[in-house]
């Protein structure tokens, strides 16, 4: 019973974190058909930005929940500095190219960003553990959970629902949906597609930096944290179906629960269970679990 509960709770917590990390990736793919390999590096930059702000002398005095606002500000600033710049200056040059070429462009970008991180923040770890203790801890039977974990679950739900509602229930969302469906016709209808791309990419970058910013308190921030984040995000969005937000949520839960099961029941399999699940899902549903929902041009 303990084990079942532990797998469930740890799976949900890890899955929520994964969803937070991966949602930006799936959104950018959904709108722009770009599988953004630099997503991991942007996640790392978000973590550094949050740590830098929280640890700065100006914000250093802030106590309590307000720290969360400072972290959020770090994510927003990083996204606003990077998102429009990357989309307008770099990606725009390649829009006429194939999906796979864009993937390679972002691969090149991720190499550049990783070194940029080292140049700005150095190779030594940064920490910002303060907020981790904000929500106290919860004792459930023999197990302890940190309140912050449940905050991450809540954040994931808010971010996921928010994005879903904006896309499906607002005018802005309708415009984005139309661009997803067919950018040329949208353009003919008078939609400013370039602006939708700019907005969607910047929002995708923000989701990456947000995930990084709120992961920062749990970890030691090093230049390589993005590598692990991107590979996990790939697994999540491929399992869920590229471009689908519901898919990313289900994919994150599937990965979270299978990892938690492996750790509890079969620790040897921890590393490859994620890729085994990914292969299995692709085998049964070639476009991922929610692949059909994705509206793609043929």
């Amino acid at each position: 019973m303990d084990i079942a509960f532990a797998i469930f709770a740890d799976g949900i917590i890890y899955g929520a974190w994964l969803f937070l990390v991966a949602i930006g990736l799936t959104l950018v793919f959904g709108v722009m058909k770009i599988l953004n390999v630099a997503h991991g590096a942007l996640y790392a930059i978000g973590a550094y930005a949050a740590a830098t702000l929280v640890n700065s002398s100006f914000f250093g005095q802030i106590e309590g929940m307000a720290v969360l606002i400072v972290m959020l500000a770090g994510a927003v600033i990083a996204a606003l500095l990077l998102g429009p710049f990357l989309e307008r200056v770099l990606l725009r040059l390649f829009y006429e190219r194939d999906e796979i070429v864009l993937l390679l462009v972002t691969f090149g970008l991720s190499l550049i960003l990783e070194d940029l991180i080292k140049l700005i923040w150095g190779v030594y770890s940064h920490y910002v553990p303060g907020p981790y203790a904000l929500f106290g801890d919860v004792e459930i039977g023999p197990l302890f959970y940190v309140g912050y974990d449940f905050f991450i679950v809540g954040l994931a739900v808010v971010v996921g629902l928010g994005t879903y509602l904006v896309l499906n229930r607002t005018n802005v969302g309708k415009v984005v949906q139309s661009v997803i469906h067919d950018d040329e016709i949208s353009r003919a209808m008078g939609i400013n597609v370039a602006r939708v791309y700019l907005g969607a990419f910047t929002f995708g970058v923000f989701l990456a930096t947000l995930a990084g910013a709120f992961t920062a308190p749990m970890i030691a921030i090093t230049p390589t944290i993005g590598v692990n984040a991107i590979i996990l995000s790939f697994a999540v969005v491929v399992i869920g179906g590229l471009g689908s937000i519901q898919g990313a949520a289900i994919g994150a839960l599937v990965v979270g629960l299978s990892r938690a099961s492996a750790i509890n029941l079969w620790p040897e399999a921890e590393l490859f269970v994620i890729y085994a699940v990914m292969s299995l899902v692709l085998l049964v549903r070639p476009e991922g679990l929610f692949g059909q929902i994705q509206q793609r041009k043929i």
Binding site: D2, I3, A6, A9, D10, G11, I13, Y14, W17, P142, L143, F144, Y145, V146, D149, T215, M218, I219, T224, I225, V227, N228, R259, A260, I263, N264, P267, E268, E270, L271
Partner: peptide, 24 residues
């Protein structure tokens, strides 16, 4: 009573820590 081998660079150890808590 148990041996865990987390992946290098995993960064998130909540589940493993709970296994250790349970094994005591």
């Amino acid at each position: 009573v148990g041996e865990l081998f987390p992946e290098t660079g995993a960064g998130q150890y909540g589940a493993q820590i709970n296994v250790l808590m349970r094994l005591k």
